[in-house]
Design a protein around this nucleic acid. Structure first.
Length: 585
RNA sequence: GGUCCGGUAGUUCAGUUGGUUAGAAUACAUGCCUGUCACGCAUGGGGUCGCGAGUUCGAGUCUCGUCCGGACCGCCA
């Protein structure tokens, strides 16, 4: 028998029991006459004692144990002479009687402990060792519990979990597809799904009524801390529902998960904000509303003082940083550098200090009197001691820049507390988005999203103004999920494809099966998908989704542990009828 | 495709203005040590300074290129 107990469960009540434990050697402390061995498994750490006087051979064997050896040790539980209050098993130790080495270990490239000395690169290369560390494993346990609770909630709401295929068809809309060559159909390719979108809609037509799936999705785009080429979604669809039904159902799921995983009671309705307001007040469709610091539009009141930069700007936007009037020149210069970074791209930063004594000091004193600045302060709802920061320029770009500045100030002021959770719904997204590159409209969400009834008449005259029945769940500035009420009518879907620049033939070729299906009684339906990894990283208090994924890919989309992707043998290529084409220089 | 940061012992890092034999901590090995739990003490081994070129009497240090890792922009319906 390898074990009678785990390494985390023995207590003072077990004294005098003879037990066998198996695990990894955390550390052997050789004191000469006696040796202590800490044995670790997933459940905890237990100390064993070997004594030269009792059994010299056994003790000698123990002192030679290296880190991460896998051993089984039998002995009698005893109360410790000197207890360790830091670990749950610290009141007892096991007087070893038998030691079996099950597996030796090379010296690990980094120490397996919470505060490891290993860097990220090394940890990824030896991910199987990294996963032995408590803090990493605990993140995956959170993920596991999330899966259970998602299933509990949705099952209780009569959702049916249904698997959809992984080898599907490539479509031109949306992200780049991963493609898979078909051996049996030379010259043809499958694509991996970016989402099970059309399948879940077909399941609604099949009368499943409520579907969900915790499912891998694939997008061949560049990676980020919160983006992996393969990621997991909680994908859902419901029939005979309006937007309100979906929002309520999934607000419920969110609350359920917060209660179960964080013991956070969210006994309030999630605030809702239109896309237009989100852009106007936060410069983002995923605002972090853990703190206010809303944008104030100074375009009207700040023009007309012969300050060319302002007079010529399409938009003058300000935020008010509470209590920052005492910022030094150096701090302000740093902020200026921040907004001028190429990634942000502002030309400069105007500041107005509203000093404690009621006076003003600004970088535009040459153009604006104290009275002018007082008007700004009033518009910004600023108090003495506050700092007003102003960016100007093209409206959309400036709002984006101001958004970055706002988040930076929120960070500096400690307003982005990771233990605070501020969920919200962003609603009324535009249906279409103009794309300069292809000179046509693209679906902002996806081409199956339905337009709002009251905006439908604008579709031909002013497509950009049409709002969609689309919504996003945003928590702490992270897009956690999004969805829409779908089109369930062949003609409307055809019309939509036309607006997206598809010919009827192309639409038929790509999505003919869906439009065919619409002819056989499609119920009104809609759905949502949550980013499972992002939600897990939020619950785990992490910035990156990598640490809630057992075997993630690196920045370049590589798995450095198994070293993929990799070349394949010529035989394989031949079998698949594949040859390489060189990109033109 | 682009911007920025990094690469020195197994590991985490320091390394001054370009100048003697490239250091520290930790890990590892050996020896001593009977109450440790970050055990302690002593001794020892361990380096293609990512790679390549250039400047120089002399390069870990400066320049260019390249590879690798990370953050971000573009991209991500």
């Amino acid at each position: 028998m390898y074990r009678t107990h785990t390494c985390g469960e023995l207590r003072i009540q077990n004294v005098n029991e003879t037990v066998t434990l198996s695990g990894w050697v955390q550390k052997a402390r050789d004191l000469g006459g006696m040796t202590f061995v800490d044995l670790r498994d997933r459940y905890g750490i237990t100390q064993f004692v070997f004594n030269m006087e009792t059994d010299a051979d056994l003790c000698d064997k123990a002192r030679k144990l290296g880190r991460e050896y896998v051993v089984a040790i039998t002995g009698k539980v005893a109360e410790r002479e000197s207890k360790n209050s830091k670990i749950p098993t610290g009141e007892v130790e096991i007087i070893a009687e038998k030691l079996e080495i099950l597996s030796k270990s090379a010296v690990p490239p980094f120490t397996i402990e919470d505060e490891t000395d290993g860097g990220d690169e090394l940890r990824m290369k030896y991910r199987y060792l990294d996963l032995r560390r408590n803090c990493v494993r605990e993140n995956l346990v959170i993920r596991h519990k999330m899966g259970i609770e998602v299933r509990n909630y949705l099952d209780q709401k009569d959702f049916i979990e249904t698997e959809t295929p992984v080898l599907i068809k490539s479509t031109p809309e949306g992200a780049r597809d991963f493609i898979v060559p078909s051996r049996m159909n030379p010259g043809e390719f499958y694509a991996l799904p970016q989402s099970p979108q059309v399948f879940k809609q077909l399941l609604m037509i099949s009368g499943f009524d409520r579907y969900y799936q915790i499912v891998k999705c694939f997008r061949d785009e560049d990676l980020r801390a919160d983006r992996q080429p393969e990621f997991t979604q909680i994908d859902c669809e419901m029939s005979f529902v309006e937007q309100e039904d979906i929002l309520n159902t999934f607000e419920g799921l969110t609350k359920h998960l917060f209660k179960k995983l964080k013991n956070v009671e969210m006994d309030f309705d999630f605030p809702r904000m239109s896309y237009a307001d989100a852009m106007k007040y936060y410069g983002s469709d995923k605002p972090d509303i853990r703190f206010e610091m809303k944008f104030v539009d100074l375009s009207e009141i700040a023009r007309g003082n012969d300050f060319k930069v302002f007079d010529e700007a399409e938009y003058i936007g300000a935020i008010c940083a509470e209590g920052c009037a005492n910022y030094t020149r150096k701090q302000l210069d740093k902020l200026t550098d921040f907004v001028k970074k190429p990634q942000i791209g502002a030309k400069g930063l105007v500041y107005v200090k509203y000093n404690e004594d009621g006076s003003f000091k600004s970088s535009v004193d040459k153009f604006y009197s104290a009275e002018d600045l007082a008007k700004w302060a009033e518009a910004c709802n600023a108090k003495p001691g506050d700092l007003i920061l102003v960016l100007v320029g093209d409206k959309a770009a400036t709002q984006t820049q101001l958004c970055e500045l706002r988040l930076e100030m929120g960070e500096r002021l400690g307003l982005r507390d990771k233990n605070k959770f501020s969920p919200m719904w962003v609603v009324d997204f535009p249906l279409l988005e103009w794309d300069e590159d292809s000179q046509r409209f693209h679906a902002m969400h996806h081409p199956f999203t339905s337009p709002k009834k009251e905006d439908f008449h604008l579709l031909d005259t002013d497509p950009g103004a049409v709002r969609a029945n689309a919504y996003d769940l945003v928590i702490n500035g992270v897009e956690i999920g999004g969805g829409s009420i779908r089109i369930h009518d062949t003609d409307q879907q055809k019309q939509m494809f036309r607006h997206l620049g598809f010919t009827d033939e192309e639409a038929k070729e790509q999505f003919g099966f869906l439009m065919d299906a619409f002819q056989y009684g499609a119920p009104p339906h809609g759905g949502i998908a949550f980013g499972f990894d992002r939600l897990a990283s939020l619950f785990a208090g992490l910035e990156t989704i990598r640490d809630v994924i057992a075997f993630p890919k690196n920045n370049s989309g590589r798995d450095v542990m198994i070293d993929s992707p990799s070349a394949v043998a010529d035989d394989q290529l031949l079998e698949l009828n594949l040859d390489f084409r060189q990109k033109p220089e």
